[in-house]
Simulated assay, not measured.
Amino acid sequence: MKGPLFYAKILLFGEYGIIKDSKGLAIPFNAYRGALKTSKNLEGISKKSNENLYKFYNHIASLNSDVVSFNLEAFKKDLENGMYFDSSIPQGYGVGSSGALVASIYDNYADDKITVLENLTREKLLKLKEIFSLMESFFHGKSSGLDPLNSYLSLPILINSKENIEPAGIPSQKKGKGAVFLLDSEQVGETEPMVNIFMNKMKNEGFRKMISEEFALHTDACIENFLQGDVKSLFGNVKSLSKVVLKNFKPMIPDAFHKVWENGIATNDYYLKLCGSGGGGYILGFTENYKKAQESLKDYKLELVYRF
């Protein structure tokens, strides 16, 4: 048995904001992927994956939901035959490792599944998101369902609000100097503690005001600029967003990167923002001159995501 490939995802804009119903833009990231495989001799990582899939199977079996049902018999049989999830997607890095796994299990075992080939109405997209949210809650306690949705469809997705999501056309990449890149913090981040910090901060009126008046405003502008290919305006808005995040989301930025973050804003060589929930994993970078950013960040591992 060898299942189809499901890719990592990058939430370009909207981390935390989408919890509070502001806009977001997620894109597939094909450099990392995962697929279900079977082996008669499970050992090491594949053995651990098989054990974790058994736990996930129990979660799926206990879902008492009207929106989805699964072929649990086939799922269990495949587990007994040595099924595991073979993935190159780093865990705890904010690029959707659990999302790809959820997408592959849905694809393989859901009854009456919504396929990528059919006409994806808003209703179908919302239904998929709801199903994936139920499934992925096993990993994070609370899930928007967006990571698996992005992985399953392998399309850029524009989140206008919780009830309004649509596939988005993003401008094709150019061979320009500008780039979006990933900066490796070389630390693993955990989603749940970070989301808890955010939820506690949301109890503060000043923080809520900042989210709606500054964070969401800059995020929405960045998304609009990006989708329209307005690179000049984009970098102005990304710089503003980077400042807001540094000032208000310090616990989500690993300590060792506070100075690196400030340096980007001061020099304009690059601007950083959170990738996923933060706390470690990848940090997302935007630069008008990738070569310059590489020189400035020569002590760190960078990965190219998109060229302007």
Rank of each mutant, 00 (worst) to 15 (best):
100 A>F: 05
204 N>V: 13
186 E>N: 14
98 S>C: 10
163 E>C: 01
204 N>I: 15
155 L>T: 12
147 D>V: 02
212 S>W: 08
168 A>N: 03
131 I>L: 06
122 R>S: 04
119 N>C: 02
199 M>F: 10
162 K>S: 06
143 S>Q: 02
157 I>L: 14
151 S>Q: 05
205 E>D: 14
143 S>A: 15
161 S>M: 10
188 V>N: 05
209 K>T: 05
147 D>M: 02
114 I>P: 01
150 N>L: 12
136 E>G: 09
145 G>L: 04
188 V>R: 04
205 E>R: 09
134 L>G: 06
179 A>T: 02
100 A>E: 03
186 E>M: 03
151 S>M: 03
117 L>W: 11
204 N>L: 04
152 Y>V: 12
144 S>G: 11
213 E>I: 04
129 K>H: 07
176 G>E: 14
124 K>W: 13
99 G>E: 02
101 L>K: 01
140 H>C: 07
102 V>C: 06
156 P>N: 06
205 E>H: 05
181 F>Q: 00
107 D>K: 12
102 V>W: 00
127 K>R: 08
125 L>P: 07
113 K>H: 12
177 K>E: 10
96 G>T: 00
219 T>N: 13
146 L>P: 00
142 K>L: 13
129 K>A: 11
210 M>C: 10
174 K>C: 13
209 K>Y: 07
139 F>H: 08
154 S>N: 14
174 K>Y: 03
157 I>H: 07
152 Y>I: 09
110 A>E: 15
164 N>E: 13
140 H>F: 01
148 P>C: 15
185 S>P: 07
162 K>C: 07
121 T>V: 03
111 D>M: 03
119 N>G: 13
167 P>G: 06
140 H>A: 14
150 N>I: 15
219 T>V: 10
194 M>P: 09
212 S>N: 15
157 I>M: 13
172 S>P: 12
122 R>M: 07
130 E>C: 11
168 A>P: 05
157 I>F: 11
121 T>A: 01
204 N>F: 07
108 N>G: 12
202 M>P: 05
140 H>T: 12
107 D>Y: 15
169 G>T: 14
172 S>K: 14
179 A>G: 03
115 T>R: 12
214 E>S: 03
124 K>Q: 09
163 E>I: 13
155 L>Y: 10
148 P>E: 06
111 D>K: 14
205 E>A: 12
163 E>D: 13
164 N>P: 03
130 E>R: 03
128 L>P: 04
198 F>A: 00
129 K>P: 02
152 Y>K: 12
120 L>N: 09
103 A>F: 08
172 S>M: 09
121 T>F: 04
137 S>R: 06
158 L>N: 00
96 G>Q: 02
157 I>E: 04
149 L>Q: 08
108 N>K: 14
147 D>R: 03
169 G>V: 11
102 V>T: 14
104 S>C: 10
103 A>H: 06
176 G>Q: 11
